[in-house]
Amino acid sequence: MPTNIVPIPANEMDRILNLYEFDIDYSNLESTFKDLTRLAAKISGTDISLVNLIDSYTQWSVSNFGLDIDQMAREDSVCQYTILEDDHFEVEDLSIDTRFQDKSYVANPLNLRYYFGVPLKTNTGHNIGALCVLDKGQKKLTPEKIELLKIIAKEIITRLNTIKVIEDLKNRLLAEKETSKKVAHDIRGPLAGIIGVSEIIQDQGNDSKLADILEMVNLIHTSGKSVLDLADEILTEKRISKPLKEDDFNLLVLKEKLLKLYTPQAKYKDINFTVHINETNETIGFSKNKLLQIIGNLISNALKFTTEKGNVGVDLDLQTIEDQKYLNIAVTDDGVGMSDESIDRILNGTNTSSDGTVGEKGYGFGLVMVKHLIDGLKGKLEISSIEGKGTKFEVKIPQY
């Protein structure tokens, strides 16, 4: 295959959608697969083993053995070819393969030569990444070892599915809790009105002929007050300060994750990357559902189209409008900018990819996926840009 052709799966859009359904935090899975990466290296007899997930821009090494690596540009990876395969992909000598011989991992100090990868195929048949093993020496795996690596690859998918089920349950429980709060809020007004009327009747109803009516009103008042207190208790619960759990999200946690995930990409291109948050709201919890996928794609896109010494900034805030909480996200760059036609194509979901400022390859669907995810969360996306001066993406996502 010629080196200038980008390998893209035929079902790339569906593949990316399937990956995003797992809503993966790429910075938080090392312990989940640590035993499997070690086992894969032992079975294959190689120095290195990696679990890689591949999105529109980046290969994320969510677990590693023998090589301390977190991420790599997708166009530089070997696993981008593995996700094209149904069974496996093998390169016996990377140094003589024109697709890889000029890559940094083939040169000193790594001097990698052998690669074997098994696609991570989901239940819907999409390859969202690869389990791979690498070595400095040339090798040839036996059929028995290959079968064992495939078993490990299936176990990786099983664990990802388990994580997804747990997260889906958490989101459903959170939605149920928010629904109960909304119900409490909705019934509070009418109940307060009933109690108010009953108090007026009590004050004016001293005539003994109204004794029976007053007794009924007293019952209404007592019952209504009890339910009103319950509604107040439910509504007040969200204002009680609670310790942040390990997997809870707030602006501080989100900022730290974004800096950890995308600072390496910015440093590689010598771009100034910053994340700012509204410190007043920094500890308020909110749902992390699809946030890393949405913001991550916007940041990767901004880095791709910003030149050396340029700037990419992220601003995060929480806003409450008429009892509805919104997460506001702004990603700004001073890169090459976009035409009005390009903006329209993104907002209409028909955008196509293009190469970055230093030749980064375009795999398409990145911004199309962002629009799809935002729509799925009932959010809004606005884009403003001046060609040659930069672009600003603004996202508003309701928090239920």
Rank of each mutant, 00 (worst) to 15 (best):
Y57Q: 13
Y57F: 15
Y57I: 14
T58S: 07
Q59V: 00
W60F: 10
S63W: 00
N64S: 14
F65M: 04
F65Q: 09
G66A: 08
L67W: 10
I69A: 11
A73E: 10
A73W: 13
R74D: 10
V78F: 01
V78S: 09
C79Y: 08
Q80T: 12
Y81H: 10
Y81D: 02
T82M: 01
I83C: 02
E85T: 09
D87H: 14
D87R: 10
E90P: 06
E92M: 11
S95I: 01
I96L: 11
T98S: 14
F100I: 00
F100D: 00
K103Q: 15
K103T: 14
Y105R: 04
A107P: 12
A107H: 03
A107K: 10
N108Y: 01
L112K: 00
R113G: 12
R113L: 04
Y115T: 04
P119F: 02
L120G: 07
T122S: 07
G125T: 08
G125P: 02
G125E: 00
G125Q: 03
G125H: 03
H126Q: 13
I128Y: 14
I128R: 08
A130F: 05
A130E: 05
V133D: 13
L134V: 02
L134W: 06
D135S: 02
G137A: 07
G137K: 15
K139E: 05
K140A: 08
P143V: 07
K145I: 07
K145D: 15
K145Q: 15
L149G: 01
K150C: 03
K150H: 08
I152Y: 12
E155G: 03
I157V: 15
I157N: 03
I157G: 01
